[in-house]
Computed example of a mutant assay.
Amino acid sequence: MRAIELFAGAGGLGIGVSQAGFKPEAVVEWDRWCCDTIRENQARGVAAVANWPTPTEGDVKKVDFEKYEGKIQLVTGGPPCQPFSLGGKHRAQDDSRDMWPEAVRVVRESKPEAFIFENVKGLTRASFASYLAYIELQLTYPELVRRGDQNWEDHLGRLERHHTSRRRGDAGLTYQVVHRVLNAANYGVPQKRERVVFVGFRSGLGIEWSFPKETHSKEALLWDKGAAGTYWDRHRVARKDRVLTTKGAPILLPWRTVRDAIGDLPDPEFRPRQAAEISNHRFQGGARSYPGHTGSPMDEPAKTLKAGVHGVPGGENMVVRPDGSLRYFSVRESARLQTFPDDFVFHGSWSEAMRQLGNAVPVDLASIIASHVRTHLVAASGATRQK
């Protein structure tokens, strides 16, 4: 199955989609550093991007996608999130960086069987409720294009009227769309990272779909540390104070922790020579704790890695050692927290690489969602052939 990857960044979503069995026909990203990262890994023969085309570096607005009509099963991407990020300036639909209209255009022109788009949790804030509804209705009716004399609110009203009318079938290309806020930690990612994910299937395919069930839980981690105690045994760490729980043994797997993700890597501050043998694993000095920025404990999932408006906000990208000391995560450790393959390298300085990682989708979460989508597309395709 073939795909288009928009707003690719350093490739987290796209790599997960490729792992799910999709082959990208186009990869579009405007940021030079992100494109350099993808190109460098392609030149090194890294399997994660081996079957990717050379990324199209530039403004997605200037790319024509009509040539892909009838050739694409999936469109994916993370439209730039600054307008809605809790760390941004909250200009939302008035921000020129809002790329949702372009995402809708690509769907309209390429007419995929399905799409997956993701964005920051901030998009679901009450103050953005109308625009969230606007995004979903545009994705549902991508051919009901905003007229030149309409502002976005007028267009929203037009879409709502159409959606509630008897003329819904007259809209041409339509999709069945759902969205949900997902916590990556609940799917085995060693990071508490919440993103809103939109999934749509072309109407007429007869697909009934829901988001994959969660596989990991905080309760299971508490059990693993407490009543079972196997967490400490697995890491050969002296058992700490037991975290008792009144519940029985959980069904789900335990949340993965920072120690689970990076425990086998040498500390780049105290073992720099060993760390130098690992790509992107260098000590970065200057870490400090202050209110609201206290770092991630080793034995919990990491806090959300962030890119920030003016660079990396220090506290959220730090690890707190068991003795209470702290340091910045290395780029390699951050890649582990975002579940990138170990042979995937990041181009640029530490701050630049961390920006790429802070904006990325965890690879494993992307793979889980895309695999679930692909399973339903394959089943629908088989059912069509049997008719």
Rank of each mutant, 00 (worst) to 15 (best):
F198R: 08
G21Q: 04
A92W: 05
E109T: 11
R166L: 11
P297R: 05
T375M: 06
R273A: 14
S210M: 05
G157C: 04
I116T: 12
G295H: 08
L139M: 12
Q73K: 11
K303L: 09
E208S: 13
V309T: 13
E143W: 03
G169N: 14
K71G: 05
V60T: 08
C35M: 02
E153L: 06
G14P: 03
R180P: 01
R44C: 07
L137E: 11
A129S: 15
E5R: 01
V197G: 07
V145Q: 14
L173V: 08
R32D: 11
H90V: 05
A114R: 03
V63S: 05
G308Y: 01
A228P: 00
G308K: 03
V145H: 05
A275E: 07
G315M: 04
A220Q: 04
D233V: 07
N280V: 02
W100L: 07
H310W: 02
T339D: 07
L159Q: 07
W209P: 09
S165K: 06
N186V: 02
L326P: 00
P250M: 04
I262W: 05
R39P: 01
T246W: 01
L305D: 06
G308A: 07
N317F: 01
F7A: 13
P101H: 01
F7R: 11
T140S: 09
G157T: 10
Y175N: 14
E118F: 02
A276G: 11
C81T: 12
N186R: 08
Q93S: 12
G122F: 01
H372T: 13
V331K: 06
E5G: 08
L357V: 12
W52R: 09
V319F: 07
P212L: 02
S203L: 04
G87N: 09
V27Q: 08
T54W: 00
L182Q: 13
R355V: 10
S217K: 05
E214L: 03
L86W: 05
G45H: 01
D31M: 00
R125C: 07
R2Q: 13
R259Q: 12
H347Y: 06
A379P: 00
K23F: 00
G70V: 02
S367Y: 01
V181G: 14
N151K: 04
L265E: 14
E153D: 12
S279G: 09
Q19Y: 02
R108N: 11
Q356M: 04
L205Q: 15
A238H: 05
V75W: 00
A366M: 01
I38K: 07
D149I: 03
V258S: 08
V27S: 10
V60N: 07
R161H: 06
L74I: 14
P83T: 10
W209M: 06
K61Y: 02
Q191W: 03
H376K: 09
S334E: 13
D94M: 09
R2T: 15
D299M: 06
V120N: 07
D98S: 10
G200Y: 01
R108F: 06
L13E: 11
S127G: 12
R336K: 12
F117G: 14
W30Q: 10
R2K: 13
E219P: 00
G382E: 12
V345W: 00
M1E: 11
S279D: 14
P313V: 05
Q73C: 11
V243F: 02
E29F: 02
R321M: 15
F344C: 11
R256A: 10
R271F: 03
D241G: 14
Q274C: 00
P254I: 09
P80G: 11
